[in-house]
Design a protein around this nucleic acid. Structure first.
Lengths: 70, 70
DNA sequence: ACACACTCGGGTAATTGGGGAA
DNA sequence: GCTGTCCCAATTACCCGAGTGT
């Protein structure tokens, strides 16, 4: 066996949906809306980058950060 | 130049499956469907071209990039 | 030659995609 | 505007036993 250790970890729609506590269809909508990048299998199913999902999960919108607009 | 002549890097079904986050059997199905070229070992096992796999993996839709260029 | 992991083949559930409506 | 659920068709995942690769 060879070890390259260079692959990007991809997540299935169900995985992402589970992480966000939403329906898999909703994750699909996010991908369609361009809010989330997706890689397609040769059969057309979507795979998502774990790193990107994690980043989005970590992006909290607490009332003490972001833009002080209003 | 990046030609190795006939020394093309080949990947095993498990390798390709890992890259696409699918089951090795699914990769086999892609090969049967002609969506992916495969080379057979003398025993009948399939091997895949890394360059081809990489090219197919590059088909990712990104959210909104190239817009933040003020 | 032995052992172990992987891949082969076929068949059957589960998931996903797309559209549309609540 | 956003999400969850319905339909149906396609794709994918897991079951087995047997052969291959190192």
């Amino acid at each position: 066996m060879s070890m390259h250790g260079e692959s990007e970890v991809l997540l299935t729609p169900a995985e992402v949906a589970s992480l966000f506590r939403v329906d898999p269809k909703t994750v699909t909508r996010w991908a369609k809306a361009g809010k989330l990048s997706s890689i397609r299998t040769l059969g057309g199913h979507r795979r998502y980058r774990e790193s990107e999902v994690r980043a989005l999960l970590g992006a909290a919108s607490e009332p003490a950060e972001g833009t002080d607009k209003a």
